[in-house]
Design a protein around this nucleic acid. Structure first.
Lengths: 185, 185
DNA sequence: TTTGGCATGTAATCCGTTACATGATTAG
DNA sequence: CTAATCATGTAACGGATTACATGCCAAA
């Protein structure tokens, strides 16, 4: 089963959200990195060839514009692309292959010392905490202002907050347990 | 930077946990699927060639045995392998590229109807709930019995429980919100 | 003027899954 | 007897990252 790539649909989805403003490959990459980077990523090596292919397939349309002097190729959704996006949206989302190195190392914990694991846990804890707080701040800000966040996007932010809160709590407990183990040793 | 694979270390880690009992490639795959499958996976296509390579590198030793009539090749850790595992354990675990199709589709939610999203959410909710309960049961069972779960492994189970609980809660809230949106429409 | 960001692309490479291929043994 | 499971591998393929390559424009 040829695990079909989501890349084209991410592109279609972003062009769909943008709507009014056609985006270049560079723009699309910027949007991905600045908005969905915590649950999705794409590289230029994926984006540019895919844009070419999708243009050939009439899913999107390419136009060359001069945005304040600088020349670039921008893309807009075509009817076929909108249909394709729609169909993909309705398909049950796949559960990606889980690969968590932190949990893996914890699982093998008896092969190393508790201090090492504590270090790893605390590092990830900080990371998650920062991300969670960033999401929470973003949410709050968008509630006050008439920012352009759809209710759907707000839900994804809440997911991020919920997950990071749970992670931080679990990490704190685990660090405490590991420290006890060290003391009693 | 050639994103070095974790596969050899997973193999070393499992052989390290087993210790007394040498394992075959088949055994290793069984262990992965039955214990760490929720946060790690490997395919035979990775395992068998890697075992060959690691044997050549003197990280592990291969021996052919006849386990009750059936012939198989089993592997044990060698000193070099133990050192290699140790070094890897101390390296800061990488945060894998996040790829969550469910959240992605939610983010693009305005491109489809709320009912579609509710379907997706509920499906994942069930999945997570089942996994969480399985982990909780496993934990409880191992606490009563003198099962061979290291405290580290218990922590990974608790991580699974915590994450799935948080997910289920968030999913319930999100479904409720979506249903309200549908009613008010 | 030179650094940094805008902008577009290609080639090499790797990681990993899937499909294929084969065969022995055991339980029903 | 035959289906399932044990057991070991290889080949093809595809997805994705990284490194490389190029060049323009604006600001310092």
């Amino acid at each position: 089963m040829a695990r079909t790539s989501s890349t084209p649909f991410v592109i279609l989805g972003i062009l769909g959200l943008s709507e009014a403003k056609p985006l270049s490959g560079y723009d699309i990459k910027q949007v991905i990195d600045s908005t969905i980077s915590h649950f999705w990523s794409e590289s230029y090596g994926q984006i540019y060839p895919m844009l070419k292919q999708m243009t050939g397939d009439k899913l999107i349309r390419a136009r060359t514009v001069k945005d304040s002097g600088r020349r670039k190729v921008v893309y807009t959704l075509m009817p076929k692309g909108r249909k394709s996006l729609s169909a993909w949206m309705e398909k049950a989302p796949e559960i990606g292959p889980a690969r968590d190195e932190l949990i893996l190392k914890l699982f093998f914990g008896s092969q190393t010392g508790a201090p090492v694991l504590i270090r790893h846990l605390e590092r990830h804890r900080e990371r998650f905490k920062a991300v969670g707080e960033q999401y929470a701040a973003w949410l709050k800000q968008s509630e006050g202002q008439s920012e352009k966040l759809t209710p759907y996007q707000q839900m994804t932010l809440r997911a991020g907050v919920a997950m990071s809160t749970a992670f931080v709590q679990w990490a704190d407990e685990s660090v405490a347990t590991l420290q006890e183990m060290e003391n009693e040793k």
